[in-house]
Design a protein around this nucleic acid. Structure first.
Lengths: 337, 337
DNA sequence: CTGAAAGCGCTTACAG
DNA sequence: CTGAAAGCGCTTACAG
């Protein structure tokens, strides 16, 4: 089967039309008779023709390449983002190129620009926390590179983005714990500088306020979204004279760490301590007991971000999209006793 | 900065040479004077020139695209594979395209061929368990598509591959448990049809045999590499009249499930039960207690698989590569009591 | 060691 | 509604 691939010329010949007509049919351009179109499509099928991306991009001066830029410690999150973005790119005859960045600040910007230059990308999808980098956005603007963002912090910038209601979700979770009778609810903050960290903290505070529970700084600890920080924070929280009856961590990895601390210290979950997370990552179902958490629509966020980018490449005006979340109650939370 | 990208013509003009000479320098072809080369390189830098992939591939009739084909439930495994393959592709001016397949058998083959046809891939990297599919390999051969495999089962096929010593590693882990004084060691088998599952079972048996411990079928349960199957299997094992003092699961996810079963049933780990896994996946460090496991060199396996493929594309003869593993002792295993 | 010409397979811009 | 020509930016094959 090492016969040469068929080209647009072969199809044109087989269908008895000019190559321009084949091109019209393949690109769904107007002004082709139904009958002509059918002939072309038949020839395409018969010859097992697949257009050459390189010829198309050379002629149209577009690469049909989209870059997905990420720097996220959670593999589950990243894989899900990839799935969503890939699905949308495939639909739009675009190819998705991955780029995991290492550095921050200037280095990050240089890294991403080098990636874009080398591959001649048409556009970029930027995932959190990179979607918050003002320097990166400025650099991309300067180079005229279109991009869309997932969960950005700057909502004023003129580029499309998609997000969820982080503050609202955290408020719901806190209200849920309050509803179970908890009054001493601790909170483990996410990585500093992540917009989501701030929003989730805000939601936690808002829910307490709504119930007139005074905010207790002692019950709030800084984490960094990693398992270990949740473990450390919970160890401190559980040795407090008046220890909390519930811990709400700003993501599942830290909540898993909090569970581990409880196990270490012989604190029964959920009998003596409720633990809640955020993300509905795979780890929320692999720990014991399984975590009550907020389902973040990661796949849909990425699919939508890709969709917004492709639309922007077609010249559509940017419009923000907000996606829904969901509280998932599992065995790690229970009534306060 | 929306000025036109510079082309090979711009560079040739700036350096005062023909475009063919620029091409020679950029592709490290012989027969260019040091001095000429320096002039060209200076112009490349000055103009911030980056060759066009589409022009290059159109002219050379290669796409410079490599596909990574996978179907693995573990995100951590997949991300690590991507990292390794990406690193090697980047070095070789190739782009890596992801393709997660859904089906098996005929559907799988059709799916992968469609992917290759649409993207005009130069070659494929096939990861386990897909690397075991005889149908897929036959189809790729028929279409003249080069590929390399990670951890294949058919070692006779004429295509490059890289693997590790699964049987040897499982034998080591079993011997380690025997060394801790365990005599009733249970084993949870991986997904049926995975070559690695068979090899790891073989290693377990071999280690028992070496110590003249009779093989007890009751202590061996079928799993499928997922957390849940480890949970189920361990529940059964722990209700056996003579329950095992150690459980060795063929991967970390199942070992994590076994840990959960122990927690449920109030069996202390490692005091009353040792649990060991395989892979050194992230989950091995997020469960309690952290898992003793085998470090699988996933990144290196993928890097090497990409390397072998790129070499094959240059016409190098295929040669198999075996990479080392490592037993990592953590807190989930202890002396038998 | 260097270069001029042809051509890869499409789309763009234009003509009819 | 359809087509002929030019050209995108490189590499190949060849000449010198």
């Amino acid at each position: 089967m090492s016969t040469r691939r068929s080209s647009i010329n072969d199809v044109a010949k087989a269908a008895g039309v000019a190559i321009k007509t084949v091109s019209r049919v393949l690109n769904n351009e107007p002004n082709v008779r139904q009958e002509t179109s059918a002939k072309v499509l038949a020839a395409v099928k018969r010859l097992n023709y697949h257009p050459s991306l390189s010829a198309r991009s050379l002629a149209s001066r577009r690469s049909y390449l989209v870059g997905l830029v990420y720097e996220n410690p959670s593999a589950n999150y990243t894989i899900e983002v990839q799935r969503g973005a890939l699905a949308r790119c495939r639909e739009g005859k675009f190819l998705l190129l991955l780029h995991e960045v290492a550095g921050r600040g200037e280095e990050l910007t240089r890294d991403v620009l080098a990636f874009a230059n080398q591959t001649h990308l048409d556009g970029l999808i930027i995932t959190p926390p990179l979607s918050e980098s003002v320097e990166l956005m400025a650099a991309l603007d300067e180079h005229g590179l279109p991009f869309s963002r997932i969960a950005p912090s700057d909502l004023k910038h003129r580029s499309p983005y998609v997000d969820m209601d982080d503050a609202g979700a955290a408020r719901e979770m806190t209200a849920y714990l309050l509803g179970l009778g908890h009054r001493r609810i601790a909170f483990i903050i996410g990585r500093t500088g992540h917009h989501a960290s701030e929003l989730r903290l805000l939601g936690y505070k808002a829910a307490l306020k709504a119930q007139k529970i005074p905010f207790a700084p002692d019950y709030v600890r800084q984490g960094d979204f990693l398992f270990d920080s949740g473990l450390q924070a919970a160890r401190q929280l559980l040795t407090l004279p008046k220890r909390p009856t519930a811990i709400f961590a700003a993501n599942d990895d830290m909540a898993a760490g909090a569970l581990m601390a409880a196990h270490e210290m012989g604190v029964a979950v959920p009998d003596e301590l409720s633990v809640a997370g955020f993300d509905d990552a795979a780890i929320s179902r692999t720990v014991w007991p399984p975590l009550t958490t907020i389902r973040q629509p990661t796949y849909d966020l990425a699919y939508t971000a890709a969709d917004l980018l492709l639309q922007a490449l077609e010249g559509a005006p940017p419009k923000p999209v907000r996606l829904p979340h969901q509280l998932i109650a599992r065995a790690s939370t229970g009534k306060a006793k």
